[in-house]
Structure formats: structure tokens, C-alpha cells
Design a protein around this nucleic acid. Structure first.
Lengths: 97, 97
DNA sequence: TATTTATTTGCATTTATGTGCAACAATGAA
DNA sequence: TTCATTGTTGCACATAAATGCAAATAAATA
């Protein structure tokens, strides 16, 4: 396992491994439809700008994706990507040598 | 999902989501037998005391376990626990509403 | 006992990260 | 165009986290 891949996985896990970001993930997990930032603000007790920044980090790591809809952004959890990465890692953990 | 569980999962993910700690996890992943701190030092370019602290954090989160063997400690990856937690989370991500 | 080896802990320092507030940009509505 | 709404970015600050070095602890060995 080369350093770049280790770093990439670490970044992914670190992105979800923060309380407010994980709260956002769970919030989106319970939503059938994409949500805008204002709505997502309800789940963590911080400024909207903070939520915006957290969503940016989650988006960079492929944990959420979004569509621009007018002046709003509709965020959704990238369930497939997140689940796949977690399971791949779990398999490695149990499979290696 | 209550705050305590979210915090607990965040702590777990944060523990693995750091480059040197993830390197330690991968190192242990390739070992059939438990390893002591000196041996584990080889995989990350930091002081032994730093490795010791990282292992402590990993142990607190149930990612590694260890046995005292004289003056050494033999660390091993808790494959089952790590894999299970990752898969449970993956299932939640894909299952929830 | 004195010494070497393995590991942890205390302390200081640096770096990274989360946060709020204010200002800005972009879009929609009056 | 003017105003309101939605969201992001710049800046400053506080806190958390990673790190190295030295000292302390614990156990094996000479």
C-alpha cells in the first residue's frame, strides 16, 4: 500500500470522522431527496458558514454530491461511494496475509 | 442516532483517519503475529514516543489490542472489530430511509 | 546491583482544524 | 433596479492534535 493511497484513505476517513460532519452525513442519510444548506444547518448547532465548509470537505472526499438549483445547492449523500470505500477497507483489514 | 453514538463513531473514524496511524494499521494488517513498538516504528518516520501515543489512541478505540510480554508489548490489529464497525456503518449508509 | 532495553509520560512547540462574524457573490422576486 | 435569500469566502481566534526530546518506569540481563 503506497503512501498516496494511505493518505487518500486517511483523508476520506478524517472527513467523516468529525462530529458535525458525521451528523450531516446521518442527516442526509435520512433524506430521500437532496437538501439545501439551510435545511442541513438544523442538524448541527453552528453557523451556516461552518456547515458550508463542512459540506465542501465532504464533497471533496466524494461523500456528498450536489446540484446547483438556482441560488440553492441540493446536497445528497453519495451512498454507493461511501459504502463501497468502507467495505473495501473492511475487506482489506480481514483479508491481508 | 443519538449524539453519543455519533461521537463514538466519529472518534473511531478519526483514530484511523490519520496518516501515521493508518500506516500502523496497514503494517499490522500484514503481520501474522503481534508486533512490538520498536518493530512498528519502522513504518512511520517519527519518534518512538509518537508511535507509542498513536498505538494508545488506536487501542482506546478498539482498533488494536496488546499483550504485555515482559518489558515489551505485543500489538495486534483487532481485525474483527474494525471490519465489523466499518461494515455496520456501510450498511447504515445504504439502508436508512 | 548496575546496566541495557522497551515503552510511556511530561513538557514545549508547532501545525492543523473548527468556529463566528462580516463581507461578498449569485440568483430570484418585487 | 432594488431588495431579499442562499451560499461561500476572508479574516481572526481558540482549541485540538501531532511531534520531538528528555526524563521516568519497568523488566531482562550481566
Amino acid at each position: 500500500m503506497d503512501d498516496l493511497k494511505v493518505q487518500a484513505l486517511a483523508n476520506f476517513l478524517k472527513a467523516i470522522g468529525e462530529f458535525n460532519r458525521l451528523s450531516l452525513v446521518y442527516k442526509l442519510c435520512q433524506c430521500k431527496t437532496p437538501q439545501n444548506v439551510m435545511c442541513l444547518c438544523e442538524c448541527c448547532d453552528v453557523d451556516a458558514s461552518v456547515v458550508s465548509r463542512h459540506l465542501k470537505i465532504l464533497a471533496q472526499e466524494g461523500i456528498v454530491k450536489f446540484d446547483k438549483k438556482g441560488r440553492e445547492r441540493a446536497y445528497a449523500l453519495d451512498r454507493k461511494n461511501v459504502a463501497t470505500k468502507l467495505r473495501d477497507f473492511a475487506n482489506q483489514i480481514e483479508t491481508d496475509i
